[in-house]
Computed example of a mutant assay.
Amino acid sequence: MTEPNGPLHKTPLFELHQTLGAKMVGFAGYDMPIQFEGVKAEHLWTRESCGLFDVSHMGPCFLTLAGGPRNDPDAHIEIAKLIEMLVPSDIQGLKPGQARLTVLLNDEGGILDDLIITRPAEGDEQGRLYIVVNGAMKAQDWDIMREKLSPHAELERADDRILIAVQGPKAEAVISDHFPKAAELGFMEGQRMFLNDAPVMVSRCGYTGEDGYELLLPSDGVAFVAELLADERVKPIGLGARDSLRLEAGLCLYGHDMDASRTPVEASLTWVIQKNRRERADFPGAEIILDQIANGAPVKRVGIQPLDRAPAREGTEIFVGDEKVGEITSGGFGPTTETPVAMGYVAREHAKAGTELTLMVRGKPRAAKVAKLPFVPHNYKR
């Protein structure tokens, strides 16, 4: 991923990271913690207890009908119809408080970004959507929304605030100590709650495969984050473990496992396109995408299991016999599985689980096979 030129931005938690001894790196234009205690230890702690991630580099925002949100339910349909011009998912059908992962598409059906869209919970004004886009893509995404949806909708950036992810089997117990209603949320549900009279968006979702939450806090909420970290169940987790956790969970990283050259079908994300949107065929690139759903895509994102201890990194070529059939897009070592794990694209005819592959790792052929995703079962609160 190309880093922008110029000085790195700092999240509101930057000084706290330094106090905790974080090793910092540039990521998506921000100075971010790559690790604290060590990637393996942080990864395993998140699987066993509760990890806290600073994800304030992401692109939280609110898309609101021009003129402001309203109390009538038709306002949701109006704002949903607008955003559906850009994404292939059913946003009109979201229930109050429901969130949905979707993708922003170009006219060829290529993925410009992945994002989560949440409808306000029951009792809150409608005609407003809470949207979180990827940090590296937020300028592009927001420009598209403003260009395509103006003057019917207005975009309010919220990337000056603190966005944290609290993930792991003890996350519910930790967060419900501060937000009791958080325990009532199911997976991919969100609700506005309050911390010292300040609104906080609490969403039950995450990027690790574990149960957990994302919290959009005021920019002056550093003391609350420090309070969470003072809990013996919670440790700070860096980007290194965030990446190994999401890879074991079979989750895509934009710019690696999907990009503008890949359709949702090729990226094995066909499930983000609900039946009614397929029937309406009114989203960008619909003709190409629906043809791939009906007749198959030329390539497919799959899990790849190396059969020895050598990790296969991004860019590793994949062969069947003497024929190159694909390339690794994400790869590393899985601390939970205690094996190398990877994802990549292979030609459709070689995408079946169990297919034997050869990976060219540092110029040496290594045995591998197509594996079912995820490598570690998801533990979401259903």
Rank of each mutant, 00 (worst) to 15 (best):
G6H: 09
G6E: 02
I34L: 11
I34W: 11
I34V: 07
W45F: 09
V55Q: 07
V55L: 10
F62K: 14
L63G: 06
L63H: 06
G67V: 00
G67P: 05
P73S: 06
I77L: 14
E78L: 14
E78Q: 14
E78V: 08
A80I: 09
I83G: 02
V87E: 00
S89V: 03
Q98E: 15
R100W: 06
T102L: 03
D107P: 00
G109D: 08
L112A: 01
L115D: 07
I116E: 14
T118H: 11
R119M: 07
Q126K: 00
Q126M: 13
L129E: 13
Y130T: 09
V133D: 11
M137Q: 14
W142N: 05
L149M: 03
L149P: 06
A153T: 00
L155C: 00
A158W: 12
R161D: 10
I162E: 04
P169K: 01
A173Y: 12
A182P: 05
G186C: 11
F187H: 14
G190M: 02
Q191N: 13
D197G: 02
G206P: 04
T208Q: 00
D211G: 15
G212D: 06
L217H: 00
P218R: 03
D220E: 14
G221T: 00
A223I: 09
F224W: 15
L229N: 07
R233Q: 04
R233M: 05
K235H: 04
G238V: 02
R246S: 01
A249S: 05
A249N: 06
G255F: 03
D259P: 04
R262F: 05
V265L: 03
Q274G: 11
K275F: 01
N276A: 07
R277H: 03
E279F: 07
D282C: 09
D291A: 14
D291T: 10
I293F: 07
P298M: 00
V299C: 09
V302T: 08
G303D: 06
G303A: 04
G303W: 05
P306A: 02
R309S: 15
E314K: 12
T316W: 04
V320R: 11
E327T: 13
F333R: 10
F333K: 04
G334N: 03
P335L: 07
T355K: 08
L359S: 06
K364N: 08
L373R: 05
P374H: 09
P377E: 13
N379H: 15
Y380M: 11
